[in-house]
Computed example of a mutant assay.
Amino acid sequence: MVGEGTGNDGSTSMSFTSKSVGGEYNHLLTENEMPVHRHYEYIFVKGYPDWPVVDLDTYGAMIDFESSNYVTPNRSVHATTTNAFAHTEFAGGSTEHNNIQPYIVAYFWRRTA
């Protein structure tokens, strides 16, 4: 519940009319509302038998540590990941977004005597 009236949080002035409702129970961020960020790219490296077993599918890329050649897809091999020294472009816009819980506006009063 929110009390009827006008208020200011120091940066934004807000007005609430009795019996109005607002806010969101769920809010799915748009890309522009997400913080600015980027993702680093990694590549699988086939190598030592004590490394974990990795399933390489048809969309993956893996380099054989010993031969420096690509590994044939659709196999299970001992491998690890390493930084490919590449990254995606920046995404996200860090814009403000609604973060208000669902509410209903009501009259409030305080008895003083």
Rank of each mutant, 00 (worst) to 15 (best):
M1P: 09
V2A: 11
V2D: 05
E4G: 07
G5T: 05
G5D: 02
T6R: 10
T6N: 10
G7Q: 08
G7D: 12
N8S: 14
N8T: 11
D9F: 11
G10M: 03
G10W: 04
T12P: 04
T12Q: 12
S15T: 15
S15G: 10
S15F: 08
F16A: 12
F16V: 08
T17E: 15
T17D: 13
S18Q: 12
S18M: 12
S20C: 06
S20D: 09
V21S: 04
V21C: 03
V21R: 03
G22T: 04
G23S: 08
Y25T: 12
Y25A: 14
Y25D: 13
N26Q: 13
N26V: 10
H27T: 12
L28P: 06
L28S: 14
T30S: 15
T30H: 09
N32V: 13
E33L: 05
E33N: 06
V36W: 02
V36D: 03
R38S: 15
R38Y: 15
H39Y: 04
H39R: 05
Y40S: 10
I43H: 07
V45C: 05
V45F: 03
K46W: 04
K46T: 00
K46G: 00
P49I: 02
P49G: 00
D50M: 09
D50L: 08
W51R: 07
V53Y: 04
V54A: 00
V54Y: 03
V54P: 02
D55F: 07
D55G: 03
D55L: 00
L56N: 00
D57I: 01
T58A: 04
T58N: 04
Y59F: 02
Y59P: 02
G60V: 00
A61S: 10
A61W: 09
A61N: 13
M62T: 13
M62R: 07
I63N: 02
I63V: 15
I63K: 01
D64R: 00
E66F: 04
S68A: 09
S68H: 06
N69P: 01
V71W: 09
T72I: 12
T72F: 09
T72H: 11
T72Y: 08
N74C: 14
N74S: 15
V77P: 01
A79D: 07
T80V: 15
T80P: 06
T81P: 09
T82N: 11
N83H: 13
N83A: 11
A84M: 14
A86I: 06
H87R: 15
T88V: 14
E89I: 12
E89V: 14
F90D: 13
A91K: 15
G93N: 08
G93A: 08
G93T: 06
S94G: 11
S94K: 08
S94E: 13
S94D: 15
S94Y: 09
T95D: 12
H97F: 15
H97C: 11
H97S: 11
N98F: 02
I100E: 08
I100N: 07
Y103H: 09
I104P: 01
I104E: 01
I104C: 02
V105S: 01
F108M: 02
W109L: 06
W109F: 05
R110V: 06
R110C: 04
T112S: 05
A113Q: 03
